[in-house]
Amino acid sequence: MLAAYAIVTVLTIAANVWAAVIDFMKADPVVANSDALGLPRSWLFWLGVLKLAGAAGLTLGLLGLRPLGVAAALGLVLFFVGAIIAHLRARVLGNIPFPGVFLALAVATLALTAAQ
């Protein structure tokens, strides 16, 4: 179980760092998605900060601060539930698999972290 926890957590960290970086870069697909959802472009920086904070908390959780890892995983679960709700409300369903994958990673990380 420890190996699964480490692998899934590292994947979740990597995915969220990548997502934060492309938010900070304001990559064209991210801007297009933000526009489709009706989110101000100024939010991209803060959404990236939240993803990066989640990744940092998961990293610290891996390094022994388990309660922080649990809190970070829970925060990412809530973040991506919110992302899916935003997609549903705006009826932007074509790219909903992206937050869905991130949500699945966060849920798996939360479950594995809590089980440690």
Score class of each variant (00 low, 15 high):
I96H: 03
P67V: 06
N95P: 01
N16L: 09
S34Y: 09
L78C: 13
A71K: 06
V30D: 10
A83K: 02
A56N: 02
R66D: 04
A32C: 00
P99H: 09
G82C: 06
T9K: 08
G75M: 05
L39Q: 14
G94F: 08
V101Q: 04
G61D: 03
V81Y: 09
V92S: 07
A6E: 14
W18T: 13
A14I: 14
L63A: 14
A108F: 01
L93F: 15
V49W: 02
V107A: 10
L63D: 03
W46H: 07
V81H: 06
L65R: 00
V81N: 05
A53N: 07
L62V: 05
Q116V: 13
A6W: 11
V81D: 04
L105F: 09
A71W: 06
G100W: 03
L103P: 05
V31R: 13
V92Y: 07
V49P: 00
A104S: 14
V70I: 15
A104W: 02
I84G: 08
I96G: 01
L78E: 03
A106Q: 06
W46C: 00
M1T: 12
A106G: 13
L93R: 12
A6N: 11
A19H: 15
G57I: 04
A111E: 09
L63W: 08
R66E: 11
G64C: 08
F98P: 00
G94Y: 07
N16A: 12
A71M: 10
A115R: 14
A115T: 09
A104Q: 01
L68M: 10
S34N: 12
L37M: 03
S42N: 00
A32Y: 00
A6R: 13
Q116Y: 14
L52N: 02
V21Y: 14
L88N: 01
V10K: 06
A56H: 03
A4C: 05
D23A: 15
R89P: 00
T113E: 15
G69A: 02
T9D: 11
A19Q: 11
A111H: 08
A115L: 13
D35P: 00
G82I: 04
G54V: 06
A90P: 07
W18Q: 12
A53I: 10
V77N: 05
G38M: 03
T59I: 07
F79P: 04
P99G: 04
A32W: 00
P40G: 14
I22R: 15
V49A: 13
V10G: 06
W46M: 09
W18D: 11
I85M: 06
L50E: 08
A55F: 07
G94N: 07
H87W: 06
L60P: 03
P29Q: 14
A19Y: 13
I85L: 04
F79N: 05
A106N: 10
D28L: 10
L58Y: 09
F24E: 11
L47P: 00
V49S: 02
V21H: 11
G75R: 00
G75D: 01
I13H: 09
L105M: 05
L74G: 14
A19S: 15
R66I: 05
L60E: 05
Y5N: 01
L74Y: 01
